[in-house]
């Protein structure tokens, strides 16, 4: 196991963890406002496909990323309409949106499978530019990667250091109390969904436009659900989500590294490592007394006036 292989795991963890982290941050906002959004997988697929298509058509990856963000936010409005305005069941609405996303994204991306795009420029991480090419190429990141930790800090600051964040968390804990103190839970939930959807769209754009430079059907491979698990994993905290996303994508990269270093263990078994780690952490977390879950998570808010 060479130094390059170990650094490689770190590099892969950062590359594939970025889209996961954006999405997890989005879901953290949803859940802090009391909404479990199981539609993320579909929203990511729609954003990835639309963003990719726009990036191909305009020849400009930045416009593609912008569109993917907007599309993510707008698609989340479907869920918003269902669960906030229509007061529908959150799990059913999320799953329906997910299946809707499977179909719609396949349609949007249909003629764009395997079409080439202009990649995002990759900027060397400070101090790594003079390393040998094989090492240096591990640490040349696109701007979305550099941006992801500041975004996580920003979300933390918004949630825990601003009045807006206080209102959002209050809605997630007890929407009636929030309403009594002069907030509008409906409006706040829509805001959380809008911003969260944009973050998920950003994550999806990183996946298709920046990292894999490719669109293929079902390309998110369950990352929308992993993000939901990571929110619980990080106890609804944006900064802990950084660790969660890195740990999960690091585990994927680690098992691939084990495979390619010739460990004589069945690859079927190695492929389960990331999920085993997730289970393990959930077991450990499950034992602690303090639950950080928003109190009215998943509950339908019936409105302030009785």
């Amino acid at each position: 196991m060479s130094l390059l292989a170990i650094l490689g795991v770190l590099s892969s963890a950062i590359f594939s963890g970025t889209s996961l982290l954006y999405t997890t941050l989005g879901e953290t906002l949803h859940q802090r406002a009391g909404i479990v959004n199981l539609g993320l997988e579909g929203i990511m697929l729609i954003s990835a496909a639309t963003g990719y298509r726009v990036a191909v058509e305009t020849g400009n990856p930045y416009i593609g990323i912008l569109v993917a963000m907007i599309v993510g936010g707008l698609t989340n409005m479907i869920i918003g309409f269902l669960v906030v305005t229509r007061k529908a069941n959150q799990l059913a609405s999320g799953l329906a949106t997910m299946f809707f996303g499977f179909g719609l994204s396949a349609l949007i991306g249909r003629d764009y499978v395997g079409v080439r795009i202009t990649p995002l420029p990759r900027i060397p991480f400070p101090g790594t530019a003079n390393l040998p090419l094989l090492f240096a190429s591990l640490f040349r990141f696109d701007f979305l990667i550099y941006l992801v930790i500041p975004v996580a800090v920003l979300i933390w600051w918004l949630l825990f250091r601003t009045r807006w964040g206080l209102g959002l968390r209050a809605v997630g804990e007890n929407a009636d109390t929030a309403f009594a103190s002069g907030r509008n839970p409906f409006w706040i939930k829509y805001q959380a969904l809008g911003i969260g959807g944009m973050l998920a769209g950003l994550g999806a754009a990183h996946l298709s436009i920046a990292y894999t430079m490719n669109w293929s059907q079902f390309m998110t491979g369950g990352r929308g659900f992993i993000a939901v698990a990571l929110v619980i994993f990080s106890k609804w905290h944006p900064l802990r989500a950084i660790g969660g996303a890195l740990l999960f994508s690091g585990a994927v990269a680690f098992q691939l590294m084990l495979q390619s270093s010739g460990v004589r263990v069945s690859p079927f078994l190695l492929d389960t490592i990331p999920y085993l780690i997730t289970l393990l952490v959930l077991i450990i977390w499950g034992g602690t007394r303090k639950h950080a879950a928003p109190a009215s998570l998943g509950r339908v808010y019936q409105g302030g006036q009785q």
Partner: peptide, 26 residues
């Protein structure tokens, strides 16, 4: 050196696997 992604179309995992192989000196 062989690496499997266990998916016919998970592009991100394919990119990870490719990088992982290159990091082993491939």
């Amino acid at each position: 050196i062989v690496a499997f992604t266990f998916d016919w179309g998970d592009s991100a995992k394919e990119a990870d696997a490719t990088n992982s192989l290159i990091n082993q000196g491939v």
